[in-house]
Design a protein around this nucleic acid. Structure first.
Lengths: 235, 235
DNA sequence: GACGACGTTCGGTCGTGGCCGAAGTGGGTG
DNA sequence: CACCCACTTCGGCCACGACCGAACGTCGTC
């Protein structure tokens, strides 16, 4: 048993592999060479790492022609990595210690804190604001755990998001610790659905190629109207 | 960021350290020499490992005379390790592959599957039975997340367990994936309280020095009466 | 005050694993 | 068909870290 645990942890215990996994937390599939460039290692090194990660069940791969696409094997894995990363930030990792060194990095980190995707749902101030607003409006209950109320269930239906008939092993909702806000945000099937809805409805758009997202003017209006979120809290 | 994650994972990536952490999942404090004997390594080696684990924030230590007691730093950490260990079991780890080799080990593993503590709450068939029974009786809701209902809140009060006034950052209830049953059982403050109540009321007792627990005849009666759990499901 | 148990520090050995470059494979393209 | 590019395999290098035994505090006990 200890050996299993150690083997699992060892997969993430290398800085390069950790960088791969963090990059893959954007929920998309990356090619081997993209990851190699991202982490700054040789293609051969990347190949070995990906082999280990796939064999260990952390990553799923899909070959397409001469490309090897990899993505996180499943939402559980994504959650596990987020969780681990959340605990890896020991103390005040504000702008003080360990913070960004360059202006460019600082602005990128600001954008991430404002809003980002966390695998397949929304995180950062955006994700937290939505979660808190839903809680205040009685759609979500956080005082005795983390679950939608019946009203919340109805609300999802009204927005055109069908939560029923999802017969997967994945929980409908779960809390996911936000490592910038230090509070849980909405994850699980419902969180993923909401995130997709937000993109489809044009509430937010991705900034560049990373995980950061930006709320559009239309999104600000919709969030204010539906959940009473004031645009200021999102900035 | 990747470096942080890797450093965190590296703490658990060694078989000896993993064995330490799994042992400490019983929620108690162990001395350095106990852990050394348990893992089969020299005292000097143990000392180094404990130093790293404490420095990394996984363990808390307490010196008493010539003893160094260590325990898991906090319930969050315990949950993280359980979670990681849960995902480290890849496929059917029933009696088939990777199962116990000796008769003694098989019986110990049976006892663990029947009932055990998971840090500070109940797990195994015992923990699952309680969780499921509470769900069926409308005390707990698992369909839209994982949270106590108002009835459930009242139920805790009636049993003499005060959930109110717990002003900690720890959630009142959370689901914890049971790695023998593959379903969530009740954790969080409420889970810990219920576990303590079960011991105090004599519903169950520890078997030997490990994590395994046994339900007493009185406990069977109480669980049947309060939650409608038939004694057969616990065996 | 001497002894014994618990823990720590230090020096040294050894294996594992991360890394690269070079050579090889195989799919897509001109 | 020839070429290019994405990826893989192999050999070799190097560093890190897990481990132990021996020597050294330090606390409790006889």
């Amino acid at each position: 048993m200890g050996a299993r645990l150690a083997a699992m942890a060892a997969l993430l215990a290398d800085e390069t592999r950790a960088a791969f996994c963090l990059a893959l937390l954007d929920g998309r599939a990356w090619t081997a060479s993209e990851l190699a460039r991202h982490a700054g290692v040789a293609a051969s090194t990347t190949s070995e790492h990906l082999g280990r990660l796939v064999e260990g069940g952390l990553l799923a791969e899909e070959r397409q022609g001469r490309h090897r696409y990899v993505r996180l094997a499943d939402p559980e894995i994504a959650h596990l990595i987020e969780d681990l990363a959340g605990h890896a930030v020991p103390a005040g990792t504000g702008p003080a210690e360990g913070g960004p060194r360059t202006l460019r990095a600082a602005s990128a980190s600001n954008a991430l804190a404002r809003g980002r995707t966390c695998y397949d749902h929304l995180a950062g101030r955006l994700g937290i604001s939505i979660t808190e607003a839903m809680t205040e409006r009685g759609l979500l209950r956080q005082d005795t755990g983390f679950a939608l109320t019946d009203e919340g269930l109805r609300w999802f239906g009204e927005q055109g998001m069908a939560l029923t008939g999802q017969r997967t092993r994945r929980p409908l909702v779960r809390g996911c610790l936000d490592w910038t806000e230090r509070r849980p945000h909405l994850a699980g099937t419902a969180g993923a659905l909401l995130c997709r809805h937000a993109f489809d409805a044009g509430w937010c758009v991705r900034i560049g190629s990373g995980r950061a997202v930006k709320v559009t003017p239309g999104g600000e209006r919709a969030l204010a109207e539906l959940l009473g979120i004031s645009p200021e809290t999102l900035r």
